[in-house]
Design a protein around this nucleic acid. Structure first.
Lengths: 372, 372
DNA sequence: CTGAAAGCGCTTACAG
DNA sequence: CTGAAAGCGCTTACAG
């Protein structure tokens, strides 16, 4: 019944242990390998580091011995000697919101595939000194960094990273596009995503589209820019964007405001969580989705498809972006001036059932809308 | 427009850098501190390790110097010398599902507060050899481990951890309760949670409650046991539990089966994602929630409150559990035979609107139910 | 209470 | 192509 059980020292190994369980002695070192292979330990070092000047037969023999003994180089020793650790730590303001979480997942996958260890360090503060401290602690000698910079804490952390640590970052679409100083950054095309969503809503017959904004780390959020552009290109009026947060609750609050305005027939929400809250507020106010109000989000989180109604949204592949970010970092660490052109995950509009034609002008009876 | 920008070497430090940005030289070592403080570097070592035999005035002076110089001990060197690294790595089958993700969050918070670095390593496989490999790679000399063992991969990993590495684990409620060999495990009270939910549903007037099960890592899931118990104590019939997965999609599929059975009026779902899928399936089949079917979940994820209808669920505080798990680990590493009795986060039924009285027997018109 | 010495496991010039 | 030597930054007995 208790949440916490107790131990008096490490638990003994379970019966049929098998595999590599329960060794217990000091791990096998480069010296053990050398002894077993009948070479000097320096030769072993050369083999495991892929140094060219080793006779092929020697190399092969040593490699076999490494396998047999299950030798794994001691990271600490390696780092101490000045080589990089084969580790990234992800510096992020958050691990639970979708974009961060999916990004972290992608980074972990890619890093693991490359034999890198991955660390996580959350920066909560937005106070300069605390950010600096967090950054300092996040970067160990021999390590590298990926910072997820989707908000103020993130961008501040990004700026506080010493120039001599290998680093890459996931960021919002920079305002200048690819212009200006090249930086080790990856991003999804926020502007294009917003254009797709807004155009879609307009194509359904809405006079305009309201925008519920995420907090932005940049001066001019490219999602907002894209939304604005699409509206302008259609000659639609541009309502003032509503400032929102990140969570369903924030969406719910904004949704109450939106629901009170009968002129609102279509809402583009900065992410799916916001959209969820807006939908809830609409339902609670008796406004039907999509008959009375259309709602579209960004992300395509795992729940979006199973909401009622299923949420129309723009899929943003943050996991893939995380993989790309790690690939960038790795390229940077290997050949310093390479130009890695990673595949870019393009935003994709996923049409489901939360958006439809606007209601007929008052007086007429509403139409059931099929989003096709 | 491109997802990946490019760099030719580390970007120069931005203009008004400030703070500790951009140092660039080798970090300050114990020798630098010693020199600055006018003592031997051994004394510095003693001070930073809290060794008792240092004159108070010396200690204070050295500490001040450490502060001034921003000295941070080199983890690699420390580890190499045989001390623990002040790091945990979380070994988990998953980083995105709610329980895992929230657990990781809690661990990260607690670890950070204790000055520990945290690593993450995902074990995907369920093949013995691959698990063993993952475990080996997860544990570096001087490190410690937290394994999240809510499924087969997790429990296999848990079993494969060598007995000499400091470890704690988040697990399902063990069948034997606190009985048997004490282990460094923490858990939430699954049985009690299920009893609460089932009793609540029964109290609403349902003849019985159907159970959509999560995959369990144990022989006898205590959630299922609790559900069964509550049914038995009420003399209600016990339908066969439906086997489910973890995701909304899995819930949706099971929901289609359940929706086809007119005898189903109340469904207890292994988690909120499953509940979400079930609700979707019910809606899609024209069965109203809660008028026709009541649905209850476990977890209280951030979206639960904003679903339509808002989901009644049992809150399981995995973040707090993660904190407790780290506290256990720390206690184990410090005073080996302590009996840390951490606060236990009790499951809590959160009544919202997805459950209500059962529909009246066929022929009568359904009642609108208010869950109060 | 404090200094001098050895060594953790590895890599990297330096000789052969 | 392969050995012997030095040293990364720290901690831990060992002498004073």
């Amino acid at each position: 019944m208790a949440v916490t059980s107790v131990t008096s020292g490490p638990a003994p190994s379970p019966g049929g242990g098998g595999a590599a369980a329960g060794r217990g002695q000091r791990p096998v070192s480069i010296l053990d390998v050398a002894a077993a292979a009948g070479v000097s330990y320096q030769t072993v070092s050369r083999v495991i580091n892929g140094h060219p000047s080793v006779r092929p037969s020697t190399r092969q023999h040593v490699q076999a011995t490494v396998e047999n003994l299950g030798f794994r180089p001691n990271r600490a020793a390696r780092v101490l000697r000045g080589r990089h650790a084969g580790s990234v730590t992800v510096l992020t303001p958050n691990t639970t919101l979708y974009g961060y979480q999916a990004g972290l997942q992608g980074i972990e996958e890619a890093a693991r595939a490359a034999g890198f260890a991955v660390g996580v360090r959350v920066v909560e503060s937005t106070v300069r000194a605390e950010i600096a401290d967090a950054v300092t602690r996040a970067v160990e000698p021999g390590g590298s960094l990926i910072v997820i910079a989707y908000d103020r804490a993130g961008t501040m952390a990004l700026r506080a990273v010493p120039t001599d640590v290998p680093m890459a970052a996931m960021v919002e679409t920079p305002a200048g596009g690819n212009t200006g100083r090249k930086r080790p950054w990856v991003w999804l095309d926020d502007r294009r995503a917003a254009i797709q969503a807004t155009r879609y809503l307009l194509s359904l017959g809405h006079q305009t589209v309201h925008y519920l904004a995420l907090p932005s780390s940049t001066r001019t959020s490219q999602r907002q820019v894209g939304w604005h552009e699409a509206l302008a290109e259609a000659g639609a009026p541009v309502p003032a964007p509503l400032p929102g947060g990140w969570t369903p609750r924030s969406g719910y609050e904004a949704g109450q405001v939106l629901a009170a305005d009968p002129g609102v027939t279509a809402v583009l929400c900065g992410n799916d969580d916001l959209a969820l809250g807006v939908m809830r507020a609409m339902h609670a106010t008796g406004r039907a989705i999509p008959e009375d109000v259309s709602v579209v989000g960004f992300d395509d989180t795992p729940v979006a498809e199973f909401l009622t109604p299923p949420l129309t949204t723009v899929r943003m592949d943050f996991a893939e972006l995380g993989r790309a970010c790690f690939a960038l970092l790795l390229a940077l660490m290997e050949h310093k001036d390479a130009l890695p052109h990673t595949r870019r995950p393009e935003p994709e509009l996923i049409v489901r059932e939360s958006a439809g034609p606007p209601p007929l002008p008052r007086g007429s009876s509403p139409t059931r809308a099929a989003a096709t």
